[in-house]
């Protein structure tokens, strides 16, 4: 392995990692928003909307992000909806991640015992206050492991952004391999940079999970 080459490439990878992170975080934030809205709609079984949410979740979970991106980036402009590549990446990630986050939130909401709602109601709490003070805090902490897993999953998924010519880590690696044939060095840096992004989140996830398990909600 040629270390000079590696040090020469580091700035390029840094720039790419920044793009990966920036778009990844934005996409995840929107995915959380979409997921929370969908989960609440499903939880309260809001008529009509719950059907739309159900269809969206199935469509989003049963198709690959790459295909979703191709459709948004290359397909939609043909019917007059032009999207910038970065926006497309964020929208795609939010479309995919929204359903995963919705499932995480929903299972958290449903894991809260029904009697919790009932005792809040019988203390005179309104529906909104019951959700805010009683159900949500419990549901969120139950969802944490699934939630962290989704964040890692979505950050990993950003690796297909290169297909819509966003200069992320994958794009940079592929580009450099094509140009200079320093394959081993390029792949090494690729792995290192993904580890720098993903490992801390993965460790944080397992720490949080262990903590919550010992906190022992419920009984």
């Amino acid at each position: 392995m040629n270390w000079d080459v590696i040090f020469k490439y580091i700035p390029l990878y840094k720039k790419a990692a920044w793009l990966t992170l920036r778009l990844g975080v934005l996409g995840i934030v929107f995915a959380i928003l979409v997921g929370a809205i969908c989960a609440v709609i499903a939880y309260y079984r809001v008529p009509v909307l719950k059907r739309i949410v159900a269809v969206y979740i199935e469509l989003s979970r049963n198709t690959p992000l790459l295909v979703q991106l191709f459709f948004i980036y290359y397909g939609l402009p043909k019917v007059g909806v032009s999207v910038d590549a970065e926006v497309c990446g964020v929208v795609g990630l939010a479309f995919l991640g929204g359903s995963y986050m919705a499932e995480a939130f929903r299972s958290g909401l449903e894991a809260v015992d029904k009697i919790q709602t009932e005792s809040a109601y019988s203390l005179g709490l309104s529906r909104a206050k019951t959700m805010r003070y009683v159900i949500l805090p419990q549901a969120v902490s139950i969802s944490v492991p699934a939630f962290m897993a989704n964040i890692i999953f979505l950050l990993k998924e950003t690796s297909v952004f290169s297909a819509i010519s966003l200069m992320d880590l994958m794009f940079t690696a592929k580009d450099l391999i094509g140009l200079y044939y320093k394959t081993t060095e390029c792949l090494f840096l690729l792995v290192v940079f993904y580890l720098i992004i993903l490992l801390p989140i993965s460790i944080l996830g397992s720490v949080l999970e262990r903590r919550l398990r010992y906190a022992g909600f419920g009984a």
Binding site: D113, I115, Q116, E118, S119, A120, V134, P137, Q138, S141, F217, G218, A219
Partner: peptide, 10 residues
């Protein structure tokens, strides 16, 4: 007051 588990655990 219910049979059980009605305190808010958080």
């Amino acid at each position: 007051v219910f049979q059980s588990y009605d305190l808010f655990p958080h």
